[in-house]
Write a protein that binds this DNA or RNA. Sequence first.
RNA 1: GCCUCGAUAGCUCAGCCUGGUAGAGCGAACGCCUCGUAAGCGUUAGGCCACGGGAUCGAAUCCCGUUCGAGGCUCCA
Length: 618
Amino acid sequence: MRILQLHCDYVEYTPVKKEIKSAEDLDPQSKRFEEIVVAFVAVEESDNVDVAKRAITEISESMKKIGCSKLLLYPYAHLSSKLASPTTALLLLQDMEKNAQGLEVHRAPFGWTKSYKLQVKGHPLAENSKSITAGDEKEKDSSSNALKAESKIKSYWHILTPDGKLHEIDKFNFTKHQNLEVLAKYEAAKKRAVDEPPPHVKLMKKLAIADYEPASDAGNMRFYPNGRLMKSLIERYVTDKVMEYGGFEVETPIMYDSHHPSMESYFHRFPARQYSIDSEGKHLFLRFAACFGQFLMAKDFQLSYKNMPLRLYELTRYSFRREQSGELVGLRRLRAFTMPDCHAMCVDMDQAKEEFRKRFELSRDVIKGLGIESEDYEMAIRFTEEFYNENKSLIEEMVAKLGKPVLVEMWKERFFYFVLKWEFNYVDNLGKASALSTDQIDVENGKRYNIDFMDDTNKPLNPIILHNSPSGAIERVIYTLLEKAAKDQREGRKPMFPLWLAPTQVRLIPVKPEFLDYCEKLADKLTENDIRVDVDDRNESVGKSIRDAETEWIRYIIVIGEKEVNSTTLSIRDRKSKDPHNLSVEDFITSIREETKGKPFMRINMGRSVAKRPQIMV
RNA sequence: GCCUCGAUAGCUCAGCCUGGUAGAGCGAACGCCUCGUAAGCGUUAGGCCACGGGAUCGAAUCCCGUUCGAGGCUCCA
């Protein structure tokens, strides 16, 4: 706890507006006190009731020395960078107020922005600062309920290896698992050591994929034609995969009434910050996930155990979370993002577990199809101790399938709505981890949302609900691909996208304008075969055209001149191999179709003519 | 919210410390070149130096304030 104590001639303050949800309710009245000691107090994360008691004792002792018995406790966050949660802080402040014996104590409201004015006396003891921390002595039994609630969600971290053994993080040998170590430190210690923008930010601009939009809010990006194309393809791919698995695609509203009873209770269980909109007396908020839209829909379905598992799927464009401005970097974390969200309502835990396995496979398959290999991500599994003890085999089976150690977070008691959750985390070039695919077993919301189905004895039951995003946010997939490419680049490999996602797959470069006709015909033929091709019809030198194509990461570059026009083979410059090689048009088409098999196709999104494109980024 | 950095041509940036007519590269327009696997050549246009104030004979440059942006910290009293 940090305290700045000032002996004042007078102090006055006015509460201006509430800063946090849990702010105290009160009349925002101005107050003025004279001949008073003002104690600015910051409660820190390790503080407890004992610290509060010692603090108030120390304050009153020093007040005796200066002969003042009037005290104003003034909550003041800015004294520390390791603050306690607001709940705890308020509690301890109230404690201090109560335990101040022989003093006239006032307390400025907690959770409000306040304007204030004070005049500090000129004597040597008028200014004084203290720092009080929890000593070696054990926390006493008198800890408050809020503190107990906090310790309830204390996490126990481990590493689980494919042989089913749990290891202490400190004792685990991370030599062969450096990214897992980064993830473990990142999660368990919440430690980060980054002070530069991640490399994908430059790439997303240079490749004309996405950019910041200053006229919007932070974290709301603009996507240029290349970026929009990539997003469309990924969205189509993920949606196809989920439907193949059995998902029913639906669409639900992006804004909800925060005073609707189903919403109010959910709010407390999902503490993301929202965007809100006031309209015609209603307080609306923008959805931060597709959960409630689908739950409200499922509630109105007439369901029997025969319909289960019921898999509802929505690709939310967008979900909104008002993340803190400092967290928003490039495409890693956004305030508006596209999230594939698939819920499965299951009759019981057995069916939920079976479904859970299927979705684990689905997610692995989807991620792989997106060009993210298993060495690119690290898995984390989180569960309650009880669930682990009853379902060891399920958890061990998943780790065995992944074939490498995973990070484990275990809770003694269930605090969140799920009993089991896993996610794949990509660890980027700066050592930041972000979640891609994820799935959860939710044992709470079936009841909360009054979703019920009839079992085989015609008795209504609430389903267990799985929450899965097989790929994670679409924007984050692009971020991952760009960060991977940046790593390739740094390590001397040529960066590129998976062929099916490349904005341009093939570029034709005529040696002279007279070969343009031939290029057009060839481009027609490739387009007919679902290949994204464009033609560099600018009047530039061949060298310049090739250079530009290379900087756009175009996989196949084909120069068209006399030789090609008069033969059936093409000289193909393949970004993957060093030397140009010759192939017939047919074979070339076959090779591309082979590599992009099973993936969606869209035509080029900036027109075939390179000359007619606007210059988006240099 | 706090801290740090930034705002100069369409883009990326130099100039600022030490005040004295606004610079480069890329891009664009126009022209020449008609080219075989990573930048051919020339000419031209483009700027209220974010906004407001101050000191100065004189400010992109120094001082104060504002706005906007990026990054970091803090789920923030």
